[in-house]
């Protein structure tokens, strides 16, 4: 049976990254990237072989921005220092951290995020497309990379993550039910009367539309015959 690592608990990752001071986050990022590089050398080779470009990554729910440098023999991710003078990036990717992580791990389709406007891109589209396709060639799992630090503790940590994800999913479902209940169809007698009236008017409107369409068709046919 194939081993399925749990998804990275996004709320936890977001909370940790929000709380971390930039210097600590920069160091943690460097460690994770070193780990990823040793576990996925092909991915880094492919990224380094792309056309040289700098891409800014902006998780919309984090106070941090990242600078991804690819091509020309290197592949690096650094924290953007807002105080430093930086060159204009070739492209920019913006989306919620969860959307970016899910896309990176192949759990959600980038075009789907684009259609729904949950992912915004600007700048050199060729750079973005090449980056997206290069990342999608690999089965990336950030949980695996993060847990690999823990050695024998990786198993228990993975189980804790599974529980966190389950609890998170259940909480989201409960909130959705609560939200639906708040916006449910009217139940008071007056609202029910209004809803019935709306339904009756809608039906009448549909009947009028159908009748008009039939008249139009008849006119077109008689016009064509003439």
């Amino acid at each position: 049976m194939k081993h399925e690592s749990p998804a990275l608990p996004v709320p936890l990752a977001r909370a940790v990254m929000r709380a971390m001071p930039p210097a600590a986050l920069e160091r943690a990022l460097a460690v994770v990237l070193r780990r990823m590089k040793s576990r996925r050398p092909r991915l880094f080779r492919n990224l380094a072989a792309l056309k040289p470009a700098v891409v800014h990554v902006e998780p919309s729910d984090l106070p941090h921005r990242f600078v991804l440098t690819i091509g020309g023999g290197e592949a690096r991710l650094d924290l953007l220092d807002p105080a430093a003078a930086t060159a204009k990036p070739a492209a920019l990717i913006r989306g919620a951290l969860g959307a970016l992580i899910n896309m990176l791990e192949g759990r959600i389709d980038g075009d789907t995020l684009f259609f729904s406007r949950d992912l915004l891109i600007s700048g050199d589209t060729a750079v973005i497309v090449a980056l997206r396709n290069t990342l999608d060639r690999e089965a990336i799992n950030l949980t695996d990379d993060a847990l690999s630090f823990l050695g024998p503790l990786a198993g228990p940590a993975a189980r804790v993550m599974e529980v966190m994800n389950r609890v998170g999913a259940r909480t989201r479902a409960d909130l959705a039910t609560f939200h639906d209940a708040l916006h449910a169809a009217p139940t008071y007698a007056a609202d029910r009367h209004l809803a019935d009236e709306c339904a009756r008017l809608r039906a009448e409107l549909e009947a009028v539309k159908t009748s008009l369409a039939k008249q139009d068709a008849r006119q077109r046919r008689s016009g064509a015959a003439a």
Binding site: S122, A126, I128
Partner: peptide, 15 residues
């Protein structure tokens, strides 16, 4: 639609 010829520009809330 070659990616090299495609651009997206943000114009306020619009793309």
């Amino acid at each position: 639609a070659p990616a090299s010829h495609v651009t997206y520009v943000e114009d306020g809330d619009k793309i």
